[in-house]
Each structure stands twice: as C-alpha cells, then as structure tokens.
Amino acid sequence: MSRLISQDEAILIERVLAIGANGPILPSSIASIPTLQVTDTCKCGCATVWFGPNGAATTGHNLAEVIALINNETVNVIVWSQGETIVGLEIVGYGQTGLPDFLSVKPYCDA
C-alpha cells in the first residue's frame, strides 16, 4: 500500500506541529509534509498512518502531541519522527475512527 498523504492528514500534521511540538521543528520537516507517502495504516481501523520505507512505527521520537475531538470524544494525536523525517501520524482513542477536526486540536495544558 502506498499513496500520497491526503490534504486533511497534511493539515492535521501542520496543526499538531504548530500547537504541540516537543521542541524546535526543522523547516525541512514542515516542507516535506505535502510529499509524504503513506506506506502503512493501523490494523485497528483508526486513522493512524505511517510514512516511509519502514511502514508501521517501530522506533521513533514523539515530535508533537496534542488532544483533539472526534465526535465529541477526546483523542490523542501524535506526530512521530526518525531524525528529521516525519514517519507517523497516530490517532489514539478508544473506538474512534476518522481524523479529528483540526480546529479542535489543543495542547494538553488546555485539556
């Protein structure tokens, strides 16, 4: 499975990086977002996607993490990296599917 990142996934990643970054985000990482290739998805049916040759995350760095809403239910949204490369967009929420509304993205301190 391989496809180009969707516009909604790209907007969500940009929003998560802007609001919940755990450190400085390199301009090259941001510039790469529209060209990311989805190479794997989560097996549970959620909207988590993985980018790059390694598919699903095995190792990585939590680049940014926020909370957001799907159907008025809170989920965690994590952007993963390996080095300067964005390798994952993980949506963590019990029984929630789809992407959260990017306008609902908030830092943990606003929870």
Rank of each mutant, 00 (worst) to 15 (best):
A21C: 07
R15V: 15
I33D: 07
I30F: 03
D8G: 00
R15P: 11
I11E: 14
E14H: 09
S28G: 10
I30W: 04
T35P: 01
S6L: 00
I5W: 04
Q37C: 12
S28N: 09
G45W: 06
T48E: 00
P27D: 09
P24D: 15
G45Y: 07
G45P: 03
I19H: 05
V38Y: 08
C44K: 11
S29V: 07
P24Q: 15
T39E: 07
L36A: 00
C44V: 08
P27K: 03
G20C: 08
I25C: 00
G23Q: 11
S28H: 04
I5R: 03
C46G: 00
C42D: 14
Q37W: 04
P34T: 11
I13S: 06
C44E: 10
C46T: 01
S6Q: 04
A21F: 06
A31I: 03
I30N: 04
R15A: 15
S32E: 04
C44R: 12
I25R: 01
S28Y: 05
K43M: 02
A10C: 05
V38R: 02
S28L: 10
E9T: 02
I5C: 02
P24E: 15
A31T: 06
S28A: 14
D40K: 06
E9G: 09
I25M: 03
S6M: 06
C42G: 14
V16M: 07
G45H: 06
S29N: 11
L36I: 02
A10R: 10
T48V: 01
A31V: 00
C42F: 11
L26Q: 13
P24S: 15
A31E: 13
A18I: 06
L12N: 04
A47S: 14
I11N: 12
A21M: 09
G20N: 03
S6D: 03
G45M: 07
G20Y: 04
D8M: 08
L26A: 13
S29A: 15
A47I: 05
V16A: 04
T48G: 01
I5G: 01
I33Q: 12
N22F: 01
I5M: 03
T48F: 02
T48L: 00
D40C: 05
I13V: 13
G23C: 09
S28E: 15
E9Q: 10
P24F: 14
D8V: 06
A10H: 05
